[in-house]
Design a protein around this nucleic acid. Structure first.
Lengths: 360, 360
DNA sequence: CTTATTATGTTCGTCTACCGAGCATATTCG
DNA sequence: CGAATATGCTCGGTAGACGAACATAATAAG
């Protein structure tokens, strides 16, 4: 009959909280300036955030500028946190992150492939027990293709179709994404592509290429979350069959075997050519590279850049988007998993449930 | 000193107005349901919108359902409108559109290429004189590559670098986009891909392929607005040089000359293969096609679908995104231009200036 | 035909997020 | 040292949204 909307009005709150997350150590006046609020509102909102144990003030280093000195805002020691996991071919990592994205309790251990999810589930259970209601969500980076939350192809792990979130049996929301996608998220939010309007990330590992296009800070996920499988664009020889079922896939020419067989120069050319085509089509303002792609950029930048330039539409050659080595070559997926998991905290539903959990 | 923010609080207003634009003929109760407002708020907001000459009530056809009958909301006869233009190889079109996207005063006339912009400028002047302060913005669809608001390549028109907005010398904001991008916007918002979370649109014309990826209703524009130049992905023979400066471009294999030279079957295969690769990489839930691509879909659907399926990663073949003929094969760019132009009206700045222009 | 049910829209009192002005505070600059 | 500058807090005011209650007008049930 009447609307069921208990929803508090927390849009202003959420905006401020997101800003603190994106740029910690901000002041109230800074918030007011950057979000277009009045200083009095900034004060009031921060007061509410403190009461909710969402932010805390800490001493700031003196700036040397004029004006009244002030404290800066950061994560609350009893605030909400998320667990992040990264499953790779032989090991699995875990970490805990709060507001601002700082990683804590980072671990890395080996697994035996099929038991990887059991180990992750166990660790998630430990963290849930330790952190109690502070743990709000989990993010998992998986080296495989995803569709609608399920892993549908993971050659590294020998998995069949797996619903990771269901397998973990967690009591908190679980976000599962492809590892290269998450690495791209980390680069766009806190890494080499920070503050770029649009960024393309590419990770090449020994057997494939993945990545993601970031537009305005958010990954362009596609309809089922499978966006970013750039390795299966037919840039290569149409006669070459790919284990994915298609043929001529780009990643058949950019992998460890090709490096050994055809030599680094051929692989570097193939990489550069594909990047050029993707830049033509997707128009990023920067391209971040990790894994094999970053290695080639380091060892044979000239070849990569030459093939890249040749593949660009000529009008682009005057100012091509730069090719940047990733800032997080080792833990990009883990960091990205934490970012997307924390996004669920920084939502209306997330804040409402946090408030409810604290009995407010 | 104090914040300069005169900005009215019109977020609720804007949400309601956007909803009316996206789905005209909605009721107050429908707004409340779909936007999570109370009915009393819906009443109040609609009252403000009527006072601002932004919406008007019109009689609704009886539904046959229970409950009190009601009027529905639509565009106000004195409300804000935008001008839309489409420049093609030999002709130019113009139209006027208001809330809800309905097109009025549609014209189509020939031009002599270099004078196209003069003709458009003249018509825009006429419309500005007639419509007065009701005219809020203009959108222009151009058959060329854009970068940062400027046309950098337009083989159809023989233009050099042209700043369309500046050339028009308009007194209202001007949005300039690639024609295929705008056709995709029209399909996603009001056409064949309506209500799809992610849609890929491809237009193939006699000399090239353009398109756009739509994610959540908005075009993924890229950093400079040049996103969607899918024709310059290197899906083709690496030895074939493209006028764009790159080589092996997809559009060299999918155009009128290829159709005549290599036959429709070869072109259909090339089209299907490229679409498959793009679906792998971008993960749309539907693909809309127009121009040559829609023709091939009509005349040789089997060949296109076969090549499409073969290029998909095998896990996708169980439920591939459907290939759909465009709903607006003739005026997609014009409609898309109106949509993006109207987006500037449906913004905080747009509403603030509308209110100011009405002396309120 | 009469009454019950259902859905829409309106009125009114209340609440709250945000604003602007003014003030206290603490630094650097001259 | 005083002047200038910047930050944060207090306080009264306002506008947008809410919930409860009511009026209205259709269909469904008797």
């Amino acid at each position: 009959m009447t609307t069921m909307r208990t929803a508090l009005r927390l849009r202003g709150l959420l905006e401020v909280l997101r800003h603190v997350h994106a740029a910690p150590a901000v002041t109230r006046a800074g918030l007011a300036r950057e979000l277009g609020l009045s200083r009095s509102s900034a004060t009031e909102i921060v007061g509410r955030l403190r009461a909710l144990a969402l932010v805390e003030e800490t001493e700031a280093a003196p700036t040397g500028e004029r004006g009244r000195p002030t404290t800066v805002l950061g994560p609350h020691p009893e605030g909400p946190v998320v667990a992040a996991f990264e499953i790779t071919q032989g090991t699995w990592k875990s970490a805990v992150a709060g507001l601002g994205g700082e990683q804590e309790r980072v671990t890395e251990r080996p697994h035996g492939r099929v038991d990887a999810l059991d180990l992750v589930a166990e660790r998630l259970g430990e963290l849930a027990a330790e952190l109690g209601p502070r743990l709000r969500a989990a993010g998992v980076a998986v080296p495989g293709t995803l569709s609608g939350g399920r892993v549908v192809q993971a050659v590294h792990l020998g998995w069949d179709v797996v619903d990771v979130a269901a397998e973990l049996g967690a009591s908190v929301p679980v976000v599962v994404r492809n590892d290269a996608t998450l690495a791209g998220v980390a680069e766009a939010r806190r890494g080499a592509a920070r503050d770029r309007a649009a960024a393309l990330h590419l990770t090449a590992v020994d057997v494939g290429i993945g990545g993601v296009l970031i537009d305005g800070g958010s990954p362009v996920a596609g309809g089922t979350g499978a966006g970013g499988e750039f390795g299966h664009l037919p840039f290569g020889d149409p006669a070459a069959a790919c284990p994915c079922g298609a043929s001529g896939c780009w990643e058949l020419e950019v992998n460890a075997a090709a490096l050994a067989g055809r030599g680094p120069a051929a692989v570097a050319r193939s990489l550069g050519r594909g990047i050029g085509g993707l830049v033509n089509a997707l128009d990023p303002t920067a391209v971040t590279l990790s894994g094999l792609a970053a290695d080639l950029l380091g060892s044979d930048r000239e070849t990569v850049e030459e093939a890249y330039a040749a593949a660009l539409m000529s009008y682009r050659r005057a100012a091509p988007p730069p090719l940047l080595a990733a800032r997080f070559p080792y833990d990009g997926p883990l960091r990205g998993a934490a970012e997307l998991a924390y996004d669920t905290v920084l939502s209306e539903a997330g804040l409402t449930s946090w408030q409810a959990a604290r009995g407010g």
